[in-house]
Write a protein that binds this DNA or RNA. Structure first.
Lengths: 255, 255
DNA sequence: ATGCATTTGTTCGTATGTATG
DNA sequence: GCATACATACGAACAAATGCA
């Protein structure tokens, strides 16, 4: 009675293991398992876009509905982010930056089981911009030492920081050039302890240079954190201006 | 774009008080004073773009150089932000949101000498999304009470918040509908004190609905703060998800 | 500014297999 | 055997958001 419709419309998967169409595991469940495995293996990488639903459906030889069920499941698990009109993206693995703790960059990165590295972009004496001078408690245009640095975790950029120091810290510039960390350089000029006094957080879109250095599109906001560090006596020793790419980095505050 | 009559270089000002060309106060100084007054009066509003320099020069009947001196002065004062190729903008008056303090919305706004108000957008029982359930310490899909609210300061939107409460707090939904504040509603169901346990801050671009409610362009990032509130015994009583428009709002951590 | 291509979201309809009573 | 309910799977078409030239 029924018209003999073609029962097998589906194309076989090209290279990978074929899906079982037996009565065992549902197709969408098998697909989710395969994708979950691939994401865990690192391809596609965090933040990367998956092929379009139509393409994936073709790859697995299923209808788009079936594939969508698999994606929805992964999105519910938090492994994917689906954005209408744009595509599906592998979730970023977020680096929590704990404010308040006396954390050095390398410690922060290592706590997330990643390898820290960095690159000094600038180290110079300059006139402090207005906002910086206010933070450092200097008059506008006063001399300051500026260190700009790109921080990486497993080779991926995660921070772009400007550190301003009052010029009264004699020898600091040379110490910064020689030392492996800011803490160490400060200790070399007699500041053996300091703490974060205040942090102000905002966000904005990156300019072309920032986007290039941090390897993000210009539509991805930066978290911008200004902070003031003081020594034990309460004197300001550093004004920091850190830019973090979202959503790779989050700032966490735990009183 | 062009105003009524730009025929001559030194046109008289159209509607406002004329500038004095005596040897008293410099023209650019008078112009700066007028603009300062207008900005203080609220038009143009914070964040708004000023007319182009050429248009302003015409309005005051002065050369563009003269006008630029006035704008530069205002920019140095921090009242304006001049962006090459884009225009001059009235500086946003930043609302510092102090994290860590036990701050209620109305207190926060009043501390900045503005009048707080708000609008409840949603008040309903729903299944907690994954991230929320994790924050509340519930299993995924558990029932929760959701309150979504738009916060305003002097009529301008400054926050868009979702508050999730565990359904175990019986009667809370009615209390929220009746009470003027969340603190009050919680007290009505027996939670007489709570504190912020953790705050996680990120940023992203707004979707169309968020941009509309907060009255910002879609290219202006939001600060997104997730926070967990616990009662005196340490039990979670609220999971909050707040979205603040930048740069109108900054988040400040002060340990 | 406008239109176009791409991509996800939604809603129809159809068919099949399994479990239940 | 039959009716029902439910999950699975496929097909087509359209709606809506996005990005780009």
């Amino acid at each position: 009675m029924t018209v003999a419709a073609p029962p097998r419309v589906a194309a076989p998967p090209p290279g990978a293991a074929p899906l079982s169409r037996d009565e065992g595991e549902a197709l969408w469940h098998q697909i989710a398992r395969v994708l979950r495995q691939e994401i865990a293996a690192g391809t596609p990488a965090p933040g990367a876009r998956l092929p379009a639903e139509a393409a994936l459906a073709t790859r697995f030889g299923v209808n788009r509905h079936t594939l969508r069920r698999a994606l929805e499941a992964l999105a519910r698990e938090g492994l994917l982010k689906i954005e209408r009109g744009r595509g599906s993206f592998v979730a970023e693995d977020v680096l929590d930056y704990a404010i308040g703790a006396r954390t050095r960059f390398s410690e922060w990165i290592r706590r997330h089981n990643k390898e820290p590295s960095g690159r000094i972009l600038r180290l110079e004496e300059c006139a402090a911009p207005v906002a910086v001078a206010r933070g450092l408690g200097l008059r506008a245009g006063a001399r300051a030492i500026l260190l700009e640095r790109l921080g990486l975790a497993d080779g991926r950029p995660v921070s772009l920081t400007e550190h301003y120091f009052p010029a009264r810290l004699r020898g600091l510039r040379a110490a910064l050039a020689a030392a492996a960390s800011i803490t160490e350089a400060l200790r070399a000029v007699g500041v053996d302890d300091y703490r974060r006094q205040l942090t102000r957080v905002s966000a904005r879109l990156p300019d072309a240079a920032e986007a290039g250095l941090l390897r993000i599109p210009r539509t991805r906001p930066l978290l911008v954190a200004e902070n003031v560090n003081v020594d034990r006596a309460g004197a300001v020793v550093e004004f920091g201006l850190a830019r973090y790419p979202t959503p790779r980095v989050q700032i966490v505050f735990e009183p």
